[in-house]
Design a protein around this nucleic acid. Sequence first.
DNA 1: CTCGCCGTTGAACATATGTTGAAGTCAAGC
DNA 2: GCTTGACTTCAACATATGTTCAACGGCGAG
Lengths: 130, 130
Amino acid sequence: MTTTAEIATVSATRTVSEVAGESGVAASAVRFYEKHGVITAVRTPSNQRRFNDSAACRIKVAKLAQRVGLTVREIAGVFAGLPPSPGPDDWARVATVLVEHAEARTAELRARLADLRSGTKLCEVVEQID
Amino acid sequence: MTTTAEIATVSATRTVSEVAGESGVAASAVRFYEKHGVITAVRTPSNQRRFNDSAACRIKVAKLAQRVGLTVREIAGVFAGLPPSPGPDDWARVATVLVEHAEARTAELRARLADLRSGTKLCEVVEQID
DNA sequence: CTCGCCGTTGAACATATGTTGAAGTCAAGC
DNA sequence: GCTTGACTTCAACATATGTTCAACGGCGAG
């Protein structure tokens, strides 16, 4: 059996332009993200890309992830575990991974800045009066 | 009067290679960072660059900042307010700015991920059974 | 004084992240 | 059936972040 939900989620109907519009990036970027595994497409008989609902969302999430320092390759890696049509739980896992990435890097920043501050002579001038 | 500390902090004695060694980047990167305002140099009579103690530290901090999504231009901007030989208080201010940058972006990530999760039909499939 | 080692500059190359343009294909409407 | 518009691929260009290379200059040791 195939439920309405399954039809809706599995069928890939969005064109490049539509995904671009939905996600707020240029069509060229949509093709770029497909090429690099951030999104995936099926092809029509006449070789056109068709994306499902999740494509625009993946791109939006990818743009956010880029802002906290992840590369496209890393983002594609995080998305690699996603099913074609991710559910709320799948997205929650991705969100967790991304936030942990971001927080780990911020923690690293904090810690290393603290190191530099405490480690005499690493960043600080030796405070010698006379 | 010129104190020992002032002599030590103001004099720029490090060569490109030395700063590269201290900071753990290539000599070419040191020149790149100078060109883009992350570090500054004075020139010897024979035109060679000389950096002060803070150069290696600026580079280390810059590398950390890059990891949380800041560009070289942004980092140069953050460092722009620093005196030639920053003291502990100057570094503390820089650290605060960088951590706030990182946390703001992580907060943005969190918030937008939450938006996407809550905003029905943005990322989630409509959960319809039958 | 010559040699070798740094340093200098500028250009070319390399990778990441895209954008733009040219040339061709396909489907839909007049 | 011809035009139009959206799609395709591929190549060139653009920016950010560096690295490598070639050609050249100065300085200290032998």
